[in-house]
């Protein structure tokens, strides 16, 4: 059962991938430009710390680690799940109904519907940044790298959940997809500097309401030597996988409710 789904997923995504690579030059320029964009954010952290070496206890390479961690998880989200951004237009154009009539779980159909190559540009920039930072952060073990992998996947799951929950609003309202721009902004801006630079209201918001800080900020502490200074409680640096699991469950529940409420876009 699961094996059949994996085979099907790979077949569908490789077809999608081939259709995107029809123009190799455009493909290369597109991916490289996104890598360039990702690296520019890493450059910003580097330039600033040349004048101010430590920001709220975070050094150059710790800041680069944090921003690259988000860049990598974001790349995974963009590559495999970017269609959550387009739920609104899929529904409005009536294309969404295709997923409902297939003999497959609609969530599976929806997830296998698109692969976005630009995500690989983000992943590349993120990995370059992570490696550059990890060289300067002591005490790496295979175990820690395995945990980093779990954190990266959990981070992508958190971003997916938040994006999907906003996307699912469209089942009830048939609009509101534009709200995602605000979420995009929160994700891109508040994953680059330590949470402690922001005021208390933002810290509570980004930890407990829109748990953006669990993507890159809290888990970063786990990999650093100095773990003092975690806001609220040091326990938070271990919680990323749990937060991801919880959010994914809630999202799936919202999605199911949404499908039941969905009546189609036509008259």
């Amino acid at each position: 059962m699961i094996g059949r789904h994996i085979k099907l997923y790979l077949a569908m995504q490789s077809a999608n991938l081939r259709s995107h690579m029809a123009y190799p030059l455009n493909f290369a320029i597109g991916v490289l430009s996104i890598t360039f964009l990702g690296l520019s954010f890493i450059l910003v952290s580097w330039v600033i710390t040349q004048k101010v070496p430590v920001i709220d206890g975070w050094s150059t390479y710790e800041l680069i680690f944090m921003t690259s961690l988000w860049r990598t998880t974001h790349g995974i989200f963009i590559a495999f799940f970017v269609q959550s951004w387009f739920l609104e237009s899929l529904i409005r154009n009536g294309e969404f109904d295709r997923f409902l009539v297939r003999p497959l779980n609609p969530m599976f159909s929806f997830a296998a519907h698109n692969i976005q190559i630009y995500g690989f540009g983000d992943m590349l920039a993120g990995l370059i940044g992570l490696v550059a930072a990890m060289v300067h952060i002591p005490d790496w073990t295979l175990g820690k790298i395995a945990i980093l992998l779990v954190i990266v996947i959990s981070g992508a799951a958190i971003e997916w959940s938040l994006q999907m929950m906003i996307g699912c609003m469209v089942f009830w309202t048939l609009q509101g997809g534009a709200m995602r721009h605000i979420l995009d902004q929160l994700l891109a801006q508040f994953t680059r500097f330590p949470l402690s630079v922001y005021n208390g209201v933002l810290q509570v918001l980004l930890t407990f309401i829109l748990p953006v800080a669990f993507i890159s900020y809290y888990p970063s502490y786990f990999f650093f030597g100095d773990r003092s200074g975690v806001p609220f409680s040091p326990v938070l640096m271990y919680l990323t996988p749990l937060v991801a699991l919880l959010l994914v469950s809630v999202t799936y529940f919202v999605w199911t409710k949404g499908l039941n409420a969905y009546k189609g876009a036509g008259s």
Binding site: G30, V31, S33, L37, V44
Partner: peptide
């Protein structure tokens, strides 16, 4: 004909070199 990537390069260069980000 396809300029998505070129346009992205332009935006990044302006963001960095203009003083908008730093």
């Amino acid at each position: 004909t396809e300029t998505w990537g070129i346009d992205m390069f332009k935006s990044v260069i302006i963001d960095i070199c203009s003083g908008a980000m730093i």
